[in-house]
């Protein structure tokens, strides 16, 4: 029983990190069909910014790092992605790789390739102890903050004017523009939101691992990308569930596979992804744009 609870908490916390990343990538894809691989670098830069500022005051570091990541997201949209907005998806994909590599190597130049260790929000590393169960506060915080963020985002998308415009743009970008939705503004808001999600992910990754390196976001972006695919490209709820799906499957396999097979865990995770796509080629949740209309 104790083990079962531990495993459930583990699965939810890993899944939450993946879900936050997948949502950051899914938001942008839904509106402009851009798979933003540089999202991982937004996370990486958020973490480095925390380290650069943390000496002063932790809450300040969080706010400043978040603001800087949002500014970076907006800036990369303006400089790199806006000029290729009407180009083919391939061009946009290549652009996102270029931004991703540029940012990684920029940080190799500034901070060096050697990983840096630093402690942040040490209090979160301590566990809650309930009987024989010890659950790191961080895991609880990750799950709780993810739920709050998702709820906030859902409210924003359904209740606010920008949110409604974003959903309209995701549904049919050209029609939304014809009806007076301002493309630049909607896309900028989407990038700002993905910057916030990247900033939050950066905080959790930093508290969890305490180690920063310029390549730290690459794997995360890859998982986020796969999660948006199985969730159904263009569907936000799908991206979130896709993230949880990969997180939960990973933890369950790590726990359930016999020792000899555990090194091949990723093969099983991605076999599960393939199975989902075979059963539902459009993903778990079909994005509205995928439906054929007559």
């Amino acid at each position: 029983m104790t083990t079962a609870i531990q495993v459930i908490v583990d699965a939810l916390s890993v899944g939450s990190l993946y879900a936050l990343t997948a949502l950051g990538i899914g938001l942008i894809f839904g509106i402009m069909r851009l798979i933003n691989f540089a999202h991982g670098e937004f996370v990486m830069i958020g973490a480095y910014m925390l380290m650069a500022i943390v000496a002063q005051y932790e809450p300040l570091a969080i706010i400043v790092a978040m603001v800087l990541v949002v500014v970076l997201a907006l800036f990369s949209e303006r400089i790199a992605f806006r000029p290729v907005r009407n180009a083919s998806p391939t061009t946009m994909l290549v652009t996102s790789f270029a931004v991703s590599y540029f940012l990684q190597y920029l940080f190799v130049m500034i901070y060096g390739a050697r990983p840096k260790g630093f402690e942040f929000l040490a209090g979160l590393a301590e566990p809650f102890v309930i009987g024989t169960i010890r659950i790191p506060k961080l895991n609880v915080a990750i799950v709780a903050v993810t739920i709050v963020l998702l709820a906030g985002l859902a409210l924003f998308l359904t209740r606010s004017r920008f949110g409604v415009q974003m959903r309209a743009a995701a549904l049919n970008f050209r029609m939304a523009r014809l009806l007076g939705v301002r493309a630049d503004r909607v896309i900028a808001v989407a990038f700002a939101l993905s910057g916030i999600l990247a900033g939050v992910t950066a905080i959790f990754i930093t508290v969890q691992g305490g180690t920063l390196s310029p390549g730290m976001g690459v794997q995360l972006a890859l998982i986020g990308f796969v999660a948006t695919i199985i969730g159904g490209m263009g569907s936000l709820i799908g991206a979130v569930l896709g993230g949880y799906f990969i997180g939960v499957v990973t933890v369950l396999l790590q726990f359930g596979l016999p020792l000899e097979m555990r090194p091949y865990r990723e093969a099983f995770v991605f076999a599960a992804v393939i199975l989902v796509l075979l059963a539902r080629p459009q993903g778990l949740f079909r994005g509205a744009e995928a439906r054929e209309r007559v």
């Binding site: 583990d10 699965a11 890993v14 990190l17 895991n139 969890q208 794997q219 555990r262 090194p263 990723e266």
Partner: peptide
């Protein structure tokens, strides 16, 4: 148990 230092972000399990 096993982990992969290049790809695993969490070792919770």
């Amino acid at each position: 148990d096993t982990f992969n230092g290049q790809t695993d972000t969490s070792a919770a399990g």
